[in-house]
Amino acid sequence: MGFMALFLETLIGGVLAGTMYSLVAIGFVLIFKASGVFNYAQGAMLLFSALLFVTLLKLGWPIPLALFATMVVTVIGALAIERIVLRPLANRSTMTLFLATLGLSFVIEGLAQGIMGTEVHALNLGVEDLPIFWGDILISQFDLYAAGVAITLTLLLALFFNKTRIGVSLRAVADDAGAAQSIGINLNFIWQVVWAVSALVGLVAGLAWGARQGVSFNLSLVVLKALPVLIIGGFTSIGGAIIAGVIVGAAEALAETYLGPIVGGGIQFWFAYFLALIFLFIRPTGLFGDAEIERV
């Protein structure tokens, strides 16, 4: 296999894998944009929904019913979190909110694994991961599907935000919560909507990741993969999350292929973070983030 073919194969594989990062990052962006909460528990929510779904399948539920039940439970769970944890903390510092979601992630992980067990489950979504060849270049069919799902989801969210009343209110809240409130937008309602939507996005991401690497505790760690993506894309831009996910995926794959053998492999554990740091030095607020000015 030639240099070019290997390079392209690595790049395409990375780009497709990157959309999986984007999928997780979108869930963060939604909540952060509307309420300033960096939801560390997004990973735990992902784990919970995927674990619930496989558990129901194991109990013999048909896929559509299990999916529906999982959706209902995760949405109710997200609404409860907003009501019980975040609302009493409204107007507190971003860091306090973050730490609360860190505590929340412990609660959700503990509940998920305490009730549904800690063993690793395989999740078969009926997508066979047969390789597709494009000339010399091998492409994972599963990754193609996952990328398709990520793109579809982004388009749906874009439609939701631009075409629906709720979406427009939500953007108003993101721009200026005070002003939005003064024209009669109910903040609490908007927060509930973003938590519910982001739980659903988490469910999609959970199933995609679960199908690829099995449903286990490791799912909740994808939150750590999403963080560099958010840094590069900015915390408030869905488009940024998609592009940054792709950048991280591609760069990681290239680095693992070309740099990995030189330094002993395993660099995917930290490479994304170093990439994010490099971006930070160039643009301290991310590719699409807004600069914050401290007023004096």
């Binding site: 903390l89 507190r92 306090t96 730490l99 929340l104 503990g110 509940l111 694994q113 305490g114």
Partner: peptide
Amino acid sequence: PGFLSNMNKVIFGSLIIILLI
């Protein structure tokens, strides 16, 4: 013991949240 350690996590997490609130 697995269940126990998970319940420990739940208690810790809840405690963090309650303290912050």
